[in-house]
Amino acid sequence: MTATETTHATPAGPSAVPAAALALGDDALVLSHRLGEWAGHAPVLEEEVALANIALDLLGQARVLLSMAGDEDELAFLREERSFRNLQLVEQPNGDFAHTIARQLYFSLYQHLLWTELAAGQGPFAPLAAKAVKETAYHVDHAVQWTVRLGDGTEESTRRMRAGLDALWKYTGEMFRPVEGVDVDGAALEQRWLAELDDVLSRARLDPPEGPRTGAWRAGAGREGLHTEPFGRMLAEMQHLHRSHPGASW
Protein backbone atom coordinates (compact mmCIF):
# COMPACT_ATOMS: atom_id res chain seq x y z
CA MET A 1 0.00 0.00 0.00
CA THR A 2 2.91 2.27 -0.58
CA ALA A 3 1.33 4.47 -3.18
CA THR A 4 -1.74 5.33 -1.19
CA GLU A 5 0.08 7.58 1.24
CA THR A 6 0.98 10.20 -1.36
CA THR A 7 -1.96 12.51 -1.35
CA HIS A 8 -0.69 16.00 -2.02
CA ALA A 9 0.13 17.32 -5.43
CA THR A 10 3.90 17.42 -5.32
CA PRO A 11 6.07 17.66 -8.41
CA ALA A 12 5.76 14.39 -10.28
CA GLY A 13 8.19 12.03 -8.58
CA PRO A 14 8.67 8.29 -8.93
CA SER A 15 5.43 7.70 -7.02
CA ALA A 16 3.40 9.82 -9.45
CA VAL A 17 2.50 6.95 -11.78
CA PRO A 18 1.21 4.63 -9.06
CA ALA A 19 -0.70 7.49 -7.46
CA ALA A 20 -2.34 8.41 -10.72
CA ALA A 21 -3.04 4.78 -11.55
CA LEU A 22 -4.73 4.46 -8.19
CA ALA A 23 -6.95 7.50 -8.73
CA LEU A 24 -8.08 6.38 -12.19
CA GLY A 25 -8.23 2.72 -11.18
CA ASP A 26 -10.40 3.47 -8.15
CA ASP A 27 -12.83 5.42 -10.34
CA ALA A 28 -13.23 2.42 -12.62
CA LEU A 29 -13.38 -0.11 -9.79
CA VAL A 30 -15.98 1.73 -7.75
CA LEU A 31 -18.24 2.57 -10.67
CA SER A 32 -18.02 -1.01 -11.89
CA HIS A 33 -19.08 -2.20 -8.46
CA ARG A 34 -22.06 0.15 -8.41
CA LEU A 35 -23.15 -1.02 -11.87
CA GLY A 36 -22.77 -4.61 -10.71
CA GLU A 37 -25.43 -3.91 -8.09
CA TRP A 38 -27.95 -3.61 -10.91
CA ALA A 39 -27.67 -7.32 -11.78
CA GLY A 40 -31.14 -8.79 -11.52
CA HIS A 41 -32.78 -5.39 -11.05
CA ALA A 42 -32.60 -3.74 -14.48
CA PRO A 43 -35.79 -2.36 -16.07
CA VAL A 44 -35.64 -4.77 -19.00
CA LEU A 45 -33.53 -7.83 -19.90
CA GLU A 46 -31.72 -6.08 -22.72
CA GLU A 47 -30.51 -3.51 -20.19
CA GLU A 48 -29.21 -6.22 -17.84
CA VAL A 49 -26.85 -7.18 -20.63
CA ALA A 50 -25.91 -3.59 -21.46
CA LEU A 51 -25.13 -2.52 -17.88
CA ALA A 52 -23.09 -5.64 -17.26
CA ASN A 53 -21.04 -4.96 -20.39
CA ILE A 54 -20.16 -1.50 -19.13
CA ALA A 55 -19.37 -2.81 -15.66
CA LEU A 56 -17.06 -5.44 -17.14
CA ASP A 57 -15.24 -2.89 -19.31
CA LEU A 58 -14.65 -0.73 -16.24
CA LEU A 59 -13.53 -3.66 -14.12
CA GLY A 60 -11.04 -4.57 -16.83
CA GLN A 61 -9.68 -1.03 -16.82
CA ALA A 62 -9.52 -1.06 -13.02
CA ARG A 63 -7.49 -4.25 -12.96
CA VAL A 64 -4.90 -2.90 -15.38
CA LEU A 65 -4.63 0.38 -13.49
CA LEU A 66 -4.45 -1.10 -10.00
CA SER A 67 -1.82 -3.54 -11.19
CA MET A 68 0.27 -0.53 -12.21
CA ALA A 69 0.10 0.59 -8.59
CA GLY A 70 0.59 -2.75 -6.83
CA ASP A 71 -1.33 -5.97 -6.26
CA GLU A 72 -4.86 -5.50 -7.58
CA ASP A 73 -6.58 -7.51 -4.87
CA GLU A 74 -4.62 -6.06 -2.00
CA LEU A 75 -5.44 -2.60 -3.24
CA ALA A 76 -9.11 -3.34 -3.81
CA PHE A 77 -9.84 -5.34 -0.71
CA LEU A 78 -7.40 -4.27 1.99
CA ARG A 79 -7.39 -0.49 1.84
CA GLU A 80 -9.46 1.56 4.23
CA GLU A 81 -11.98 4.04 2.99
CA ARG A 82 -9.69 7.02 3.50
CA SER A 83 -7.07 5.52 1.21
CA PHE A 84 -9.36 5.28 -1.82
CA ARG A 85 -8.76 7.98 -4.39
CA ASN A 86 -11.89 7.73 -6.53
CA LEU A 87 -14.18 10.63 -7.31
CA GLN A 88 -17.16 11.03 -5.04
CA LEU A 89 -19.35 10.95 -8.15
CA VAL A 90 -18.71 7.27 -8.90
CA GLU A 91 -19.39 6.08 -5.36
CA GLN A 92 -22.88 7.60 -5.26
CA PRO A 93 -25.59 4.96 -4.83
CA ASN A 94 -27.48 3.86 -7.92
CA GLY A 95 -30.82 5.46 -7.11
CA ASP A 96 -33.38 4.87 -9.85
CA PHE A 97 -32.43 4.14 -13.46
CA ALA A 98 -32.39 7.86 -14.34
CA HIS A 99 -30.02 8.55 -11.47
CA THR A 100 -27.69 5.82 -12.69
CA ILE A 101 -27.88 7.18 -16.22
CA ALA A 102 -27.08 10.70 -15.00
CA ARG A 103 -24.01 9.35 -13.20
CA GLN A 104 -23.02 7.44 -16.33
CA LEU A 105 -23.46 10.50 -18.50
CA TYR A 106 -21.36 12.78 -16.32
CA PHE A 107 -18.62 10.26 -15.75
CA SER A 108 -18.34 8.64 -19.16
CA LEU A 109 -18.22 11.99 -20.94
CA TYR A 110 -15.33 12.92 -18.67
CA GLN A 111 -13.60 9.56 -18.91
CA HIS A 112 -13.86 9.53 -22.68
CA LEU A 113 -12.22 12.96 -22.94
CA LEU A 114 -9.54 11.84 -20.51
CA TRP A 115 -8.70 8.59 -22.32
CA THR A 116 -8.70 10.39 -25.68
CA GLU A 117 -6.18 12.85 -24.31
CA LEU A 118 -4.00 10.18 -22.69
CA ALA A 119 -4.14 7.90 -25.73
CA ALA A 120 -2.70 10.71 -27.85
CA GLY A 121 0.24 11.21 -25.49
CA GLN A 122 3.37 9.19 -24.79
CA GLY A 123 2.81 8.69 -21.09
CA PRO A 124 2.51 5.43 -19.14
CA PHE A 125 -1.26 5.34 -19.61
CA ALA A 126 -1.20 5.61 -23.40
CA PRO A 127 -1.46 1.86 -24.14
CA LEU A 128 -4.40 1.32 -21.81
CA ALA A 129 -6.04 4.55 -22.94
CA ALA A 130 -5.93 3.46 -26.56
CA LYS A 131 -8.06 0.44 -25.72
CA ALA A 132 -10.21 2.11 -23.07
CA VAL A 133 -11.17 5.01 -25.31
CA LYS A 134 -13.15 2.65 -27.54
CA GLU A 135 -14.94 1.09 -24.60
CA THR A 136 -15.72 4.46 -23.12
CA ALA A 137 -17.05 5.80 -26.42
CA TYR A 138 -19.67 3.10 -26.15
CA HIS A 139 -20.43 4.01 -22.53
CA VAL A 140 -20.98 7.60 -23.62
CA ASP A 141 -23.28 6.44 -26.37
CA HIS A 142 -25.30 4.30 -23.97
CA ALA A 143 -25.69 7.17 -21.51
CA VAL A 144 -26.58 9.65 -24.26
CA GLN A 145 -29.20 7.36 -25.82
CA TRP A 146 -30.91 6.92 -22.47
CA THR A 147 -30.60 10.55 -21.41
CA VAL A 148 -32.37 11.58 -24.60
CA ARG A 149 -35.10 8.94 -24.21
CA LEU A 150 -35.75 9.63 -20.55
CA GLY A 151 -35.42 13.40 -20.91
CA ASP A 152 -37.79 13.48 -23.86
CA GLY A 153 -40.00 10.52 -22.92
CA THR A 154 -42.92 10.76 -20.52
CA GLU A 155 -43.61 13.40 -17.87
CA GLU A 156 -42.44 10.99 -15.21
CA SER A 157 -39.21 10.12 -16.97
CA THR A 158 -38.41 13.79 -17.58
CA ARG A 159 -38.92 14.52 -13.89
CA ARG A 160 -36.71 11.60 -12.84
CA MET A 161 -33.95 12.40 -15.34
CA ARG A 162 -33.98 16.01 -14.23
CA ALA A 163 -33.75 14.93 -10.57
CA GLY A 164 -30.83 12.60 -11.26
CA LEU A 165 -28.87 15.25 -13.13
CA ASP A 166 -29.54 17.85 -10.42
CA ALA A 167 -28.63 15.59 -7.53
CA LEU A 168 -25.25 14.61 -8.97
CA TRP A 169 -24.30 17.99 -10.39
CA LYS A 170 -22.38 19.02 -7.29
CA TYR A 171 -19.99 16.10 -7.73
CA THR A 172 -18.94 17.00 -11.26
CA GLY A 173 -16.43 19.76 -10.50
CA GLU A 174 -14.04 17.34 -8.85
CA MET A 175 -13.38 15.54 -12.14
CA PHE A 176 -11.34 18.43 -13.48
CA ARG A 177 -9.04 19.00 -10.52
CA PRO A 178 -5.43 18.19 -11.33
CA VAL A 179 -4.29 14.67 -10.50
CA GLU A 180 -0.58 14.16 -9.94
CA GLY A 181 0.83 12.04 -12.74
CA VAL A 182 -2.11 12.55 -15.10
CA ASP A 183 -0.87 14.79 -17.82
CA VAL A 184 -3.97 16.65 -18.98
CA ASP A 185 -5.17 20.22 -18.94
CA GLY A 186 -8.13 20.07 -16.55
CA ALA A 187 -9.55 23.43 -17.51
CA ALA A 188 -9.56 22.59 -21.21
CA LEU A 189 -11.09 19.20 -20.46
CA GLU A 190 -13.81 20.91 -18.47
CA GLN A 191 -14.69 23.29 -21.29
CA ARG A 192 -15.11 20.41 -23.71
CA TRP A 193 -17.09 18.42 -21.15
CA LEU A 194 -19.48 21.32 -20.61
CA ALA A 195 -19.95 21.78 -24.35
CA GLU A 196 -20.63 18.08 -24.95
CA LEU A 197 -23.00 17.89 -22.01
CA ASP A 198 -24.85 20.94 -23.26
CA ASP A 199 -25.31 19.29 -26.60
CA VAL A 200 -26.71 16.08 -25.10
CA LEU A 201 -29.04 17.93 -22.76
CA SER A 202 -30.45 20.03 -25.55
CA ARG A 203 -31.16 16.87 -27.55
CA ALA A 204 -32.91 15.54 -24.44
CA ARG A 205 -34.85 18.83 -24.13
CA LEU A 206 -33.41 19.40 -20.67
CA ASP A 207 -31.88 22.55 -19.20
CA PRO A 208 -28.39 22.23 -17.77
CA PRO A 209 -28.45 21.92 -13.97
CA GLU A 210 -27.57 24.98 -11.93
CA GLY A 211 -25.63 25.50 -8.74
CA PRO A 212 -22.10 24.85 -7.56
CA ARG A 213 -20.19 21.97 -9.12
CA THR A 214 -18.12 21.03 -6.12
CA GLY A 215 -19.11 19.74 -2.70
CA ALA A 216 -19.42 22.35 0.04
CA TRP A 217 -16.70 21.09 2.30
CA ARG A 218 -13.65 20.37 0.15
CA ALA A 219 -12.97 20.61 -3.53
CA GLY A 220 -11.41 17.49 -4.97
CA ALA A 221 -12.45 15.57 -1.90
CA GLY A 222 -12.54 12.01 -3.25
CA ARG A 223 -9.07 12.33 -4.72
CA GLU A 224 -7.86 13.27 -1.25
CA GLY A 225 -9.53 10.32 0.41
CA LEU A 226 -12.59 12.16 1.68
CA HIS A 227 -15.68 10.24 0.70
CA THR A 228 -19.41 10.25 1.27
CA GLU A 229 -21.17 8.05 3.82
CA PRO A 230 -22.58 5.46 1.41
CA PHE A 231 -19.03 4.62 0.28
CA GLY A 232 -18.07 3.07 3.62
CA ARG A 233 -21.02 0.70 3.41
CA MET A 234 -20.17 -0.19 -0.15
CA LEU A 235 -16.61 -1.07 0.86
CA ALA A 236 -17.79 -3.06 3.86
CA GLU A 237 -19.80 -5.27 1.55
CA MET A 238 -17.13 -5.48 -1.12
CA GLN A 239 -14.27 -6.30 1.26
CA HIS A 240 -15.75 -8.41 4.02
CA LEU A 241 -15.24 -11.86 2.51
CA HIS A 242 -11.70 -11.20 1.36
CA ARG A 243 -10.81 -9.73 4.74
CA SER A 244 -12.42 -12.63 6.63
CA HIS A 245 -9.81 -15.02 5.25
CA PRO A 246 -6.43 -13.31 5.61
CA GLY A 247 -3.83 -14.64 3.22
CA ALA A 248 -6.23 -17.00 1.45
CA SER A 249 -6.20 -17.32 -2.31
CA TRP A 250 -9.38 -17.55 -4.34
Partner: peptide, 13 residues
Protein backbone atom coordinates in the same frame (compact mmCIF):
# COMPACT_ATOMS: atom_id res chain seq x y z
CA UNK B 1 -31.03 2.85 -32.67
CA UNK B 2 -31.59 0.99 -29.43
CA UNK B 3 -32.19 -2.25 -31.31
CA UNK B 4 -28.75 -1.92 -32.87
CA UNK B 5 -27.13 -1.29 -29.51
CA UNK B 6 -28.97 -4.12 -27.79
CA UNK B 7 -27.95 -6.40 -30.62
CA UNK B 8 -24.32 -5.40 -30.19
CA UNK B 9 -24.46 -6.10 -26.45
CA UNK B 10 -26.31 -9.36 -26.79
CA UNK B 11 -25.12 -11.02 -29.96
CA UNK B 12 -21.52 -9.87 -30.29
CA UNK B 13 -20.21 -9.86 -26.73
Amino acid sequence: EMALRNARDLYTR
